[in-house]
Nucleic acid binder design. Structure first.
Length: 538
RNA sequence: GCGCCCGUGGUGAAAUGGAUAUCAUAGCAGCCUCCGAAGCUGUUGGUACAGGUUCGAUUCCUGUCGGGCGCACCA
């Protein structure tokens, strides 16, 4: 029985016991008891039910504890909790199920109404190498896509490439200047990467127009970004080129649509979007078409999002860095005015990554050429440590990345603590094979008895379902890293206290191998959700 | 100035309004004839400040202080 099924069962029993309706138990939830309480799960519902039932919480808890039935024992405790101890058999039978692929997907999303979601993230401009801050968005987006898919959701991932516009022209101009051994223009890109690129240009570049320099540079950099993402373990279902939007005339159609709906007006030779204030957004009116006749980014981005719906997606989620947060209200208001309600569009903001060097924060800027590339970071610190590090903080934490400490940090990174568990378990199974102990031998969960450490491990496995749900609720993978660290600690304590392989006592041995098999699979499975490896040896 | 985000042991983080605030690292004291000591056990130390709502606040509200970011006919 899954944790969620247990919760549902207890909830229904509670409704029956007190003759209550659905409304009265809406905040009925199983929670993890604090460490000093010896119980597997807790209920705090009696505390909230005091008003409804007009009874003291402790009294409610006592009545509830006396009446609940199932594979557990339970008791009431001040000020009004019910603490539940699950039976050994319950915990043992659940263990192998948890690691089955798709197990949690079964009851989280109903197949019939599975909305198609497109998740856009990173979307770094193809004007320079990807810097380490992109690692944060990449980790967040990719881990969340994996988690949501594990829970049965239909997710497509997308990298939007701004391969047209002003900045691309500036890029071409800058490369051309480098080719001619000149400094790039004031508003161009000054990083060293263009010097290197200029040196590798083919001979025919001598006769190139600026447009040719632009498209050459964009193609080179885009390919590099694709490699970077691959190295970072991130696979996008689609690299969506902005140019393809223009080829199909979609921004043009979008503008006509906006005009037709009376959402725009002309002023000072430009076309403005004028619906922001009517929609309750305190955002100012914004320009759609500049007085030189060119589209703004805003118009093109509205077109991009409308196109997502047109491509068959029911919901669009974007992950932006906090430097774009001011833009969100504008875009949301525009989409809503065009008939796409709030529930179809969501933006996740993650805070910026600041670079710390010699105790000083440095503002990273592509144009100034001051940054650490994502590739440098991965090569220096390692992919697993990088991804675990980025995944282990919520999107709203402000992150200072200390470059000097990055390498040292990796040694302190909890990822090794977690991976060590996996390696240790693999080692135990290797030893079992050497001693001719059959790790797959049938194990009878009925008569088994568990010690405290074994119970703690199994109970932890059971909570995985809640952890994944929390990740989706908060749109953050950090609950998994916390969970893994705690699971690892439980394992190490268990390992230290109990020897697994004991040829003299096969009953204990087969029980422990059975448990470790589940722990190993859960570890490998959840690490995979973070894009982190589960090594057999370290 | 206006808006968004954030302030938790020395450092980095966790905690759907619930019980004695959890973990990692650093510090201190211990633990290897025994499946990997990249480990275990014990210990020191914390919710920025002031109010409010609540049976109960790290969590919600108001204010103060401190920090990050944004307020373009840039993308």
């Amino acid at each position: 029985m899954k944790l969620s099924e247990l919760e549902k069962d207890l909830k229904q029993q509670t409704m029956r016991i007190f003759s209550l309706g659905e409304e009265s138990v809406k905040n009925f939830a199983l929670t993890v008891p604090p460490p000093h309480i010896k119980a597997d799960v807790s209920l705090s519902w009696p505390l909230t039910a005091a008003k409804i039932l007009h009874k003291p919480p402790l009294k409610i808890a006592e009545e509830l504890a006396a009446a609940l039935k199932g594979e557990f024992s339970c008791g009431a405790i001040r000020p009004g909790f019910v603490n539940i101890n699950l039976s050994d058999r319950f915990l043992l039978e659940e263990a192998p199920e948890i690691s089955k692929p798709g197990y949690f997907a079964e009851n989280t999303v109903e197949n019939s109404k599975k909305p198609k979601t497109v998740l856009e993230f990173v979307s770094a401009n193809p004007t320079g190498p990807m810097h380490l801050a992109s690692g944060r968005g990449a980790t967040l987006g990719d881990s969340m896509a994996r988690i949501m898919r594990a829970l049965g959701e239909d997710i497509s991932t997308e990298f939007y490439v701004n391969n047209v516009g002003h900045q691309v022209e500036r890029l071409g101009a800058s490369l051309k200047a480098r080719y001619n051994k000149q400094e790039p223009p004031e508003d161009g890109y000054h990083g060293d990467y263009l010097i290197t690129m200029a040196e590798q240009l083919p001979p025919e570049a001598a006769g190139w127009t600026q447009e040719q320099f632009s498209s050459y540079a964009v193609e080179k950099i885009l390919n590099r970004h694709k490699e970077d993402m691959k190295l970072f373990g991130v696979n996008f279902d689609c690299w969506f080129l902005e140019s393809s939007l223009h080829e199909q005339g979609i921004p043009k159609k979008t503008l006509e649509d906006i005009k037709k709906k009376g959402l725009s007006y002309e002023k000072d030779g430009a076309v403005w979007f004028g619906a922001s204030s009517e929609l309750g957004s305190d955002d100012k009116d914004r320009v759609l078409v500049k007085n030189d006749g060119r589209n703004t980014y805003f118009l093109n981005d509205i077109a991009n999002h409308l196109n997502k719906y047109a491509r068959g997606f029911d919901r669009a989620i974007d992950i932006f860095g906090a430097d774009h947060h001011g833009y969100v209200a504008r875009l949301a208001a525009a989409l809503e005015a065009l008939g796409h309600g709030k529930e179809t569009f969501r933006v996740i903001i993650h805070q910026q990554v600041a670079l710390l060097r010699d105790g000083q924060t440095i503002k990273m800027s592509k144009r100034a050429g001051e940054f650490i590339s994502l590739r440098d970071l991965v090569e220096e610190v390692g992919l697993d440590a990088c991804r675990f590090f980025f995944a282990s903080r919520g999107p709203n934490t402000h992150l200072n990345f200390d470059v000097d400490l990055a390498k040292k940090k990796s040694n302190d990174n909890p990822v090794f603590y977690v991976q060590y568990v996996h390696a240790r378990i693999c080692s135990i199974f290797a030893n079992a094979a050497e001693k001719d102990i059959d790790a797959d031998t049938a194990f009878n969960t009925d008569k088994a008895e568990l010690n405290a450490e074994e119970r703690a491990l199994l109970a932890k496995l059971m909570w995985l379902e809640r952890v994944l749900a929390d990740c989706v609720r908060d749109f953050s993978p950090h609950h998994i890293t916390t969970y893994l660290t705690e699971l690892a600690a439980l394992f190490h304590s268990f390992y230290d206290k109990h020897k697994v392989l004991d040829p003299e006592n096969m009953k204990e041995t087969s029980k422990r191998l059975y448990i470790l098999k589940a722990v190993k699979k859960v570890l490998a499975g959840t690490l995979a959700l973070l894009g982190v490896s589960a090594p057999e040896k370290m």
